[in-house]
Structure formats: structure tokens, C-alpha cells
Amino acid sequence: MIEFEYAAPTQLDDAIKQLTAAGDGARVLAGGTDIIVQLREGLRSADLVIDVKKIPELTQLEFCGEQGLHLGASVSCRRIYDDENIAAAYPGLADAVRIIGGWQIQSRASVGGNLCNSSPAADAIPPLITYSAQAHIAGPTGRHVVPVEEFCTGPGRNVLQQGELLVALTLPPQPSGSGSAYQRFIPRNEMDIAVAGAAVWVQLDKRGERIERARIALSAVAPTPVFAAEASEWLSGQPASEEVFAKAGELAKRVATPIDDMRGTAEYRTHLVGVLTKRTLATACERART
């Protein structure tokens, strides 16, 4: 690995100053499970690596029923699923963080890092999109908020400007009758990158029979994780039935623009979008009822 310097600021302001001063050569380190590999393999370079795990705001994990979830950008996957209340309130997110790498990865990898790495195949981003999560960004010119749905701009690219840092993600409180799920397809059962993934969030009516609102988001089938708007909108008012789930899967395919690569052909990936959307819808509706 090439040489770089390391800083571990304890204040957000210091981190932003260091980030700004180092310019292009600065890299942010949270769990390190992507950036260390990328630096080692020469896929990214760094003059300065800024470890953000000592900044209190970035390690904060707070949840209450009325406020929703405040998820500091460097909070590990493990901390999310280890909190039973959070895992119960956001099961789609919990699904994703349980399958990002093995346990050793989950001890370190963060959802914020997963978002900032901005891989099209990121497992945690589609659930965030379905929850309409917000990304809280701090930078030299102040703070602003961006919907996660608009955060990624291309493979490995996102809205963060030089000197800016993702501080936290916020997820709205979950009303009763809502449910969520995430599934990805991989050839093995663990330790793999998604060939395709689908996250679903639904709000059912009081009887648990009809979908009032739904949000579907996909991974690994476009340059960024994508929100399947047409399928999501179509689901409003539909009965929660297998036929409807299958139809929604067909509609979700329309936003899939995958590539052929070693993980699968475009045709296969598009097909998987239909299968996964159908299956996650069923799981999310089941969860919404309990």
C-alpha cells in the first residue's frame, strides 16, 4: 500500500477542516471494509485518511418510536441488528446489515460507509431508499440534507463535495401496519456481492389486506441503487396478494438497466428483479401484519 497520513479527529469541525485542507487526497475511514481494500489494490489513492469513528455525532445510534432512527454515519452493521428494537422497527434495514459480508465485516462496516462507497450493488442503500431516509451532510459551507434516493450519482460517485462528510442518516418513525424487507440474490448463501437486490416498504390498511402505500428500491441493476417509482405508485390501493406482488415485480423491472458481467447477464438480472420484488413484497406484507 502507498504511504498516507492518518488523522482521527474527535470533533466534526476538525474533520471538515482536515478534509477541506487535504482536498482530493483525503479519504474518510469509517469501518474501512471498502476503503482499505481500495487503497491496497490501488483503486483509490489517499494522502490523508481521516478516521471518523471518534466523532461522537457519527457514532450516535438513537431510536424512539415517535422520532424514528438517528443513525450516525460510522455506526457498524452489528450495532444495528444487535438492537432488537431497531431491528424490529426497520426489518428491511436489519435484513441488509445481517448479510453485508460475514460477521467480521459487520463488526466494522457501517451503513453510512455503504452509502458513501456508492456501489450500485450496495445492500444497505435500497432499504434506506424505501424508508425515505435522509442523509445529513456537513461541509465547509454548513450543513444540508439530501434524500438517500438522490445521494448516489453513479458507480462509486455521490453528491458529496470536497470537504463534505456524511454525518448521519435519519429514518422516519414506522407507523403500525408498516413492514419492510430486503433480499438479494447471490450464488452462494453468504459472502457475495448482490447479482440483484430488492427492498420493499409497505403500509397496509387496518385489516392487513390492502396496500395503502409502498416503496420499492433495487440494487445491482443500474449505475446506482434505484427507486422503482412506477411499481411503488401502482401498488397503492392494491390488495396484498401474490398476483399483485408478481405484477409489481414486472413493473419494477422497467427501471432495471443492468449490465452483463461475471455476476450475471442483463437478462438474468432483470428477471431477478421481478422474482425478488415479488418475494420481498410478500415478506414485507407478512411483517406488516405482525
Binding site: 492518518y6 482521527a8 475511514l29 474501512g32 481494500v37 485518511v49 469513528k53 467480521q104 463488526s107 466494522r108
Partner: peptide, 20 residues
Amino acid sequence: TVMLDGLPVNSCLVLAVEAE
């Protein structure tokens, strides 16, 4: 794999300086 602050991690994906 080693335990870092009570959790299993891949030590190849931890910078030694982080272990302060």
C-alpha cells in the same frame, strides 16, 4: 480474524493505528 473490543474483525481490514 481477531477480537477487537469484543467483536470479531478481519485484522487485514483494520489499520493498526486504529487500534489505539
